[in-house]
Simulated scan of single mutants.
Amino acid sequence: MLSAADVEFYRENGYVVAPDVLDGATLSRIRQVVAEICEGARGLETHDKVFDLEPSHRPDAPRVRRIKVPHSNFPFFRELAGYGPMVAILQQLLGPDVRLHGSKINMKAPGYGSPVEWHQDWAFYPHTNDDVLAVGVLLDDADRDNGAMMVVPGSHRGPTWNHHDETGHFCGAMDPAQCPGLDLSTAALMPARAGSMTFHHVRAVHGSAQNFSSRPRTLLLYEFAAADAFPLKGISNFAEYESCMVAGSSSIEPRVVPAPIRMPFPPPRFQGSIYESQTAIAKRYFEMRQEPAPAG
């Protein structure tokens, strides 16, 4: 559970770090499952419905940068979304009724793990209200060198910035030069030990640099919403939507709260993941060094 001061910090800044939420056995099991899943990328020529691959991936030397929607593709991660200590914190921040919205596992391999440009999750999936957040479950220690997440404090109370490219298509990234008043020099790093969890508001501006270290940085990300926050892009499968409740009671009465919204249309020119979508941006903020070729 978070302290009252932690909850107030989240309300004011749009993020909070909860140390050591996972017990050791659970952390070890998640790492094992992730390693087993990644072996499934061996032999792949390109991305598929489960794997998003690094540009230097080879079928005989797999390099995975994302496992897509693990809660849908692997029952283990759907069950893990109900992990008691995490749900208790979610109820402190979102209220008693909580629904799982999405998931992903982002992997930054030593020396070449890809950056994620500045963005707001709200740009991808606006809802009828913004009691929506993402949880970062740290499977490795994270710090500045290996690409820990950074958040601009208080940005969750500001504008929804433009996430479209020069052609007008959604690209999932902001051009900070086109965001007057956004001061990236105030961005707060969220370093933490493996087993800890980060919580950031859906409208918070955040990003992460390439992994320049010799250590991995693996982050399981869950997205959760209050049960009365309904996605403005619609619900394609209501039964599945209902099955994603992790706490409390469902609702069919959306709570509508004014918030700045830009819809993510027209859709990205390059689809598949945020990494692919962000290739359309004209200017990159985070440095990208050439990836070393796989051994052999």
Rank of each mutant, 00 (worst) to 15 (best):
R193C: 04
T279C: 02
S249G: 12
R262F: 05
L232Q: 11
P176S: 11
S185Q: 09
D97I: 02
G102F: 13
I89M: 14
H164S: 15
L94R: 05
Q91N: 06
P159A: 15
Y285N: 04
Q271H: 00
D183T: 06
A61V: 06
A177H: 12
L22M: 14
F286Q: 02
G168Q: 12
A148L: 03
S277K: 05
S208H: 06
W161E: 13
D6V: 09
N146D: 07
I67M: 00
S114P: 03
A225Q: 03
L138Y: 14
E291M: 15
V69T: 14
G172H: 11
E12K: 14
A226V: 01
S56F: 08
G95T: 04
G102K: 08
V21I: 07
E79M: 07
A187D: 13
R217A: 02
L138T: 07
G154W: 00
I274P: 00
P216V: 07
G136E: 01
R289G: 10
P176A: 12
N129G: 09
A123M: 05
M288D: 03
S155N: 13
E166F: 07
E54R: 00
R31D: 12
A173F: 11
A259P: 00
R29S: 13
F286G: 06
A204I: 03
E223S: 12
L138A: 15
S28Q: 15
F286P: 02
R66F: 06
E8C: 06
G195R: 09
H101E: 09
V132R: 00
P19A: 11
G82Y: 00
S214F: 00
R203Y: 01
R29L: 13
G95Q: 04
F77M: 06
P292S: 10
